[in-house]
């Protein structure tokens, strides 16, 4: 029997390999946008949804759950931080505080 175990270990048993990773997004009940909650391992999307419900929504935290394969997400990198976001950082005229309004007037 010991030999059997060794043989199966060379080709990891399906149960001991890691199932794909899915990122979980929950939508809270009051109409807010979906927000990242964490991740789960699951064999397929259906199971990922069920696992996400059991792990991240035990107290009515969500009215809707999205699961997305982690590898399907494209993210900006920390190295991008400066140049990538620069166009949004040097335009104060996009904020209401940029504009002067006479005292005592509500606009």
């Amino acid at each position: 029997m010991a030999n059997d175990t060794t043989t199966t270990r060379q080709q990891p048993a399906p149960s001991d390999s890691q199932w794909p990773l899915w990122e979980v997004f929950l939508q809270p009940p009051k109409g807010e946008a979906h927000e990242h909650a964490g991740s789960v391992h699951a064999t397929n999307a259906e199971q990922a949804l069920q696992n996400a419900r059991d792990v991240y929504a035990r107290r009515g935290e969500a009215v809707s759950i999205w699961v997305v394969r982690s590898e399907a997400i494209t993210a900006s990198t920390p190295e991008d931080m400066g140049p990538f976001f620069d166009p949004g950082n040097d335009k104060p005229y996009r904020h209401p505080q940029f504009y002067k309004i006479p005292r005592g007037i509500r606009v």
Partner: peptide, 16 residues
Amino acid sequence: GEWVRVAAAAYAAKQR
């Protein structure tokens, strides 16, 4: 819990 993991993987494979 081994059989649960095996069954889940087999089910997913069958669906694929």
